Amino acid sequence: MQSPSAATRTPPRWVPGVAAAALAALVAWGIHWLVPAVPLLTAAVVLGIVVGQLPFARPAVTGALSPGLSVAAKRLMRIGVVLLGLKLSLGDIADLGWVTILSTVAIVLVTFVGTMWLGRLFRLPGHQPLLIATGFSICGASAIGAMSGVVKSKDEETATPVALVTLCGTLAIFVLPVLWHPLGLSSLQFGHWVGAGVHDVGQVVATAQLAGPASLAVAVVVKLTRVLMLAPMVAVASVVERRRHVEGDPAAKRPPIVPLFVAGFILAVLVASFIPLPEVVRSASDTLQTALLAMALFGLGTAVRLRTLLGTGWRALAVGLLSWAIIAALALAAVHLS
């Protein structure tokens, strides 16, 4: 016979929020299916931002759904980042050639440092300079979520960088194709430019596919080369954060030198590079990774407060737009060097 305590046991507090995030991911998929030009992950972020502004939804977002949305934004994000590693093959990256590889790495580093400097110049608060630099230089909102987990930033602090990288990445989908022919780029060069200069993987696919399959293939490999930089950048941030903990409070619990999800990401890259995975495994992993990231980005999107962003976020907007222009210009220069 079932005990009274078991019969009255309630589900964990995170269940409603995670279920809401899953439903939102399905809605985002539906939007992408109806309008393929809108990347699924971009739709998920925008949907979260919209829901977060609705007066009748806000009590639930900040109340009953809050624990689950936080789990989605943090834990599910990390699992999604690990699975993202299965898309990477060291062989595919090597096929790009050393000039393209080195220029791609250089773009990431210069954009990261430049955006950090801009963030401090505009006196952005807290971890915002670091998070904006990470998102714009590496792989959009996914990178922001990964970095925020290491530096323990609050959801509200993470929300502005996510909104900015979504805005600029969405602009790229429309602006870069307009510039394709006036700049005299071939389809392969356009793919290289998109892969090196657009933030999120989904946004890269949505932009590069306009120039054909060859352009898309180049764009994805170049983009995933940038994604590979996520592991060392997050590891360095973890070391800095660890040192800060030691200096501030030697008795405090210190973050690991290499976060577990970063180690998992590296392991996934090695598996994809050296173990021939069946296509069904790759397909299932890609679907799961996309679903988890969509849920996570919806959770992050609900933390955005447009009234606060519009009232105090003009400096962050300026940093985002300047960083977007810098990475687009550097990527275009790299195209002509390759």
Rank of each mutant, 00 (worst) to 15 (best):
I138F: 10
I138E: 13
G140F: 04
A141S: 12
S142E: 12
S142N: 10
A143C: 14
I144F: 04
G145M: 08
G145L: 04
A146W: 12
S148T: 07
S148A: 14
S148Y: 09
G149M: 04
V151E: 09
K154F: 00
K154S: 12
D155C: 03
E156N: 09
E156V: 07
T158E: 12
T158Y: 06
A159E: 01
A159L: 03
A159Y: 03
A159H: 05
T160C: 03
T160Y: 07
T160H: 05
V162L: 10
A163G: 05
A163K: 03
V165P: 10
T166D: 10
L167N: 01
G169Y: 09
P177N: 04
V178R: 11
L179Y: 00
L179W: 00
L179A: 09
W180C: 02
W180K: 03
S187V: 08
S187P: 03
Q189Y: 04
F190M: 08
F190K: 05
F190P: 11
G191H: 00
H192D: 13
W193G: 00
V194N: 05
V194R: 01
G195C: 06
A196H: 05
V201T: 15
G202T: 11
V204F: 08
V205N: 01
L210A: 15
L210T: 15
A211S: 13
G212H: 09
P213R: 00
A214G: 08
A217K: 12
A217H: 11
A217F: 02
A219G: 02
A219N: 05
A219H: 00
V222N: 06
V222D: 06
K223P: 12
L224R: 04
T225G: 13
V227W: 03
V227E: 09
L228A: 15
L230E: 14
M233Q: 10
M233G: 11
A235E: 02
V236A: 14
V236T: 11
V236L: 15
S238I: 01
V239S: 09
V239F: 13
V239I: 15
V239C: 12
V240M: 14
V240A: 13
V240R: 12
V240Q: 08
E241K: 13
H245Q: 12
E247R: 10
E247M: 02
G248F: 01
A252L: 01
A252C: 00
K253V: 05
R254L: 02
V258W: 06
P259S: 02
L260V: 15
F261K: 01
F261P: 08
V262S: 14
A263D: 08
F265H: 06
L267V: 15
